[in-house]
Amino acid sequence: MAMLELENVHTYYGNIHALKGISMKVEKGEIVTLIGANGAGKTTTLRTITGILRPREGKVTLNGEDLSQFKAHEIVYKGVSMVPEGRGIFGRLTVSENLDMGAYSRKDKNFAPDLERIFNLFPRLKERRSQVAGTLSGGEQQMLAMARALMARPQLILMDEPSMGLAPVLVEAIFDTIVQINKEGTTVLLVEQNALMALSIASRGYVLQTGTIVLHDTAENLKKNEMVQKAYLGME
């Protein structure tokens, strides 16, 4: 049984048919990437998984459990964390307070081991613990958004374009961290426009075009695929 499974999911914004029957699977321990251009429906897919949007048809299951019976905030308690697009940090709260908010869904209050782990992954955040999050640089904010998602101890973490607006050297650091997080046992669904980077760390990939999945293969094969090379990797 797959950890996360989408079966023929149709999602609408009012009358706009945004997802036109999407099916995909994420197995435990994987990094799976969903690549596609602007407006393809990548963020819509994530919003449907996290319950902010409801599929009009089809279903989303987590470990076999239908997620449509849960409200958006309840899905967090099922072990799904989200790193939102554009980072979505709480700009007026400090780094520490942001991390506390990440642990909002936790019943236990023993955050020390989590903080230690996070500060190992992101030493920069440790230095800036008491700084206001809105004053962090873009890369630091992305780190904070990831760290905040980890505070909930998720089994599955959804990342919406973590490379957006970051310098190439930072993008590499962020992707190294994603691999590290995955190695430590968290399954990752990575939505990206930066297909080259995404495919270099993922095991499998789906290609989304105007609300439909047009390709699905291992990351290796996708990198060799002519259509992917042309449209997303900028090769002729």
Binding site: I52, H73, V76, G88, R92, L93, E97, M101, S105
Partner: peptide
């Protein structure tokens, strides 16, 4: 309190607050 922090998270960003597990 925890409630107070949830209020402030909602003030900052409702969608993200929901993604933290806050029942709006």
């Amino acid at each position: 309190s925890r409630q107070g922090r949830a209020w402030m998270a909602i003030r900052e960003d409702e969608d993200v607050a929901q993604a933290m597990g806050i029942d709006l």
